[in-house]
């Protein structure tokens, strides 16, 4: 095993840090930049560790081609997101929050099916498996917003 050039090691480390930081952002464009930077870091690592050996260079070339293709796809995705919603931010998952609401609802109100108001009137049969919470006060309308 050969020893690594310290400068290269620092550059690779810096690229990785910057790439990961960018990938953790909300905006898809920044994520895309993060992916590119991270890809460069990885390719540089491949080259640095390989030295004059041609095999890692071939691998880096392949990886560059793959990264390039994926980048184009991500750009298209960001563009579609922008066309659909006017921005390219990755929003929260709604279903996760709904499940949380279900739990909250079951704790406070054992029978009603609040989320689908159209079903609510005639659903007085004891409900599904979610409606097993302790019988408490029905007054929870106020909390729903927060």
């Amino acid at each position: 095993m050969k020893s690594l050039d310290l400068t290269m090691a620092l550059v690779v480390g810096g690229l990785f840090a910057a790439g990961v930081h960018l990938m953790l952002q909300r905006s898809l464009t920044r994520i895309l930049l993060g992916f590119i930077v991270l890809g460069h870091g990885t390719n540089l690592l491949l080259l640095t560790t390989g030295g004059a050996d041609p095999l890692p260079q071939a691998m880096a070339l392949t990886a560059i081609v793959i990264t390039f293709g994926i980048t184009t796809f991500l750009l298209a995705l960001a563009y579609r997101s922008w066309r659909l919603s006017g921005h390219d931010e990755v929003p929260d998952d709604i279903e996760d929050r709904r499940i949380g609401d279900v739990r909250e609802r079951a704790d406070t109100e054992p029978t009603a099916d609040v989320e689908d108001d159209e079903d609510e009137g005639d659903d007085g049969f004891g409900g599904g498996p979610r409606a097993r919470g302790p019988v408490g006060s029905g007054d929870r309308r106020g909390e729903e917003g927060g």
Binding site: M1, T42, L46, T49, G50, M59
Partner: peptide, 17 residues
Amino acid sequence: LMSSLLFLTAVALIYAA
């Protein structure tokens, strides 16, 4: 993508070793 890049990093390190 993140896991793919980690995979590539692992390949580079394994080749180096």
